[in-house]
Write a protein that binds this DNA or RNA. Structure first.
Lengths: 209, 209
DNA sequence: TAGATTGTTAATCGATTAACAATC
DNA sequence: TAGATTGTTAATCGATTAACAATC
């Protein structure tokens, strides 16, 4: 039975399911039970079945789940078929690294453009994507209506650029600036990657007390 | 009253407290109540007081918390004073970007060395840190006993390098390889940064249903 | 002193786990 | 058919929130 509200905890697990199912497929595994998937992932079979039940019925009694089918379903839930368009704003080391290494297309994103202020970068191409002048940002967004912006600008630019992009209709922000960004506009989604927070939890765990 | 077991949820919030307290200090704010901090962070005052009570008593009735003092205390809980030594293994785009931009020292880590297989990188210096040949990894670790390794190697190298480092006594792994790594050894801590998982939750949230 | 705010205990809420009938 | 495994309901567990006495 589908749920109307899906908790954050469940949503955070969906990409993990997607990833594990991809690995299983790569290994040529065709079917899997919640029990077996759970023990691979270190979670209970109950949790997997409970999680999936938020979205529908994807298994078969006595059989389990078809790996490929379930992956496709979860991909669908995650919105991978939408081919969201995405732009990189700020092509410093990190923006550059993401453009070079991160497989946007594999998870359904279309990386269409990048922007920077540096004259030495503008006009160059990174992994097939043209770096444009930040001046062109407004015109580009009006023309192409990108769904998501990767924020890899300096901290000081984070909020002003966000405001500008929100005004231009960008609804999703993948924020690497280590600054909390916000917007009054409803319906704006922000996903922040806080490297320091992540490493600090590791610091905590390796510190004996 | 100090707690013996501290939940994962609490630990994940500690770096956020640390960050917010840093921002407050930068703004010259000297004292803050749990209520005021909570409304800035979008959480309840109760939660803050409950979280802190796992580690001790840091406030004063009728006054609240001294911003600087509390930050120092939380930094201490997170192990920032330990000056954990850290090495970067794999100096590709991402490893390079982290070395260049990420302020290890600010959160108490000492970035001491980097390793790569590429002859064009070996011997160069990135942000003051020498890139060494991967061949030297074992000898280096035996000599310097680094606490943490940043894994920014290709996926295929993730597990073998981890095994090697575990055998050499490295206890913490900051894993950017998009592969789950594991170890039989007790006391090994892994913190993985899964970019795709992060972006997929954003994909979910901007997909209308 | 009066007001503010803590630390902590108790109440509530939500998430995880267990159990099991349904059924492939 | 017998065995396996689902989807779902119920039970448990843990985390968050509320309340309040203590006290600065």
């Amino acid at each position: 039975m589908k749920k109307q509200h899906v908790s954050e905890a469940v949503i955070r697990r969906l990409p993990r399911y997607y990833r594990y199912l991809g690995d299983l497929q790569a290994k040529g595994i065709v079917r899997i039970s919640s029990n077996s998937l759970g023990s691979r992932m270190g979670i209970t079979a109950s949790q997997i079945r409970q999680d999936l039940s938020c979205f529908g019925e994807f298994g078969q009694q006595g059989y389990g789940y078809n790996v490929k089918e379930l992956q496709t379903e979860i991909g669908h839930i995650l919105g991978i078929e939408n081919r969201h368009s995405i732009i990189v704003v700020g092509v410093g080391n990190l923006g550059h690294a993401l453009m070079q290494n991160f497989h946007f297309a594999e998870i359904g994103f279309s990386l269409d453009a990048a922007f920077d202020v540096s004259p030495s970068l503008v006009g160059t191409t990174v992994n097939g994507v043209l770096v444009r002048d930040m001046e062109e940002l407004d015109a580009y967004c009006r023309d192409h209506l990108p769904d998501v912006a990767v924020l890899t600008v300096p901290q000081s630019a984070a909020q002003p650029i966000t405001n500008r992009l929100v005004a231009l209709g960008v609804r999703g922000f993948w924020n690497f600036t280590n600054k909390e960004i916000s917007s009054d506009s409803a319906d704006i989604q922000v996903e922040s990657v806080h490297f320091a927070d992540s490493l600090l939890t590791l610091s905590y765990r390796i510190s004996k007390r």
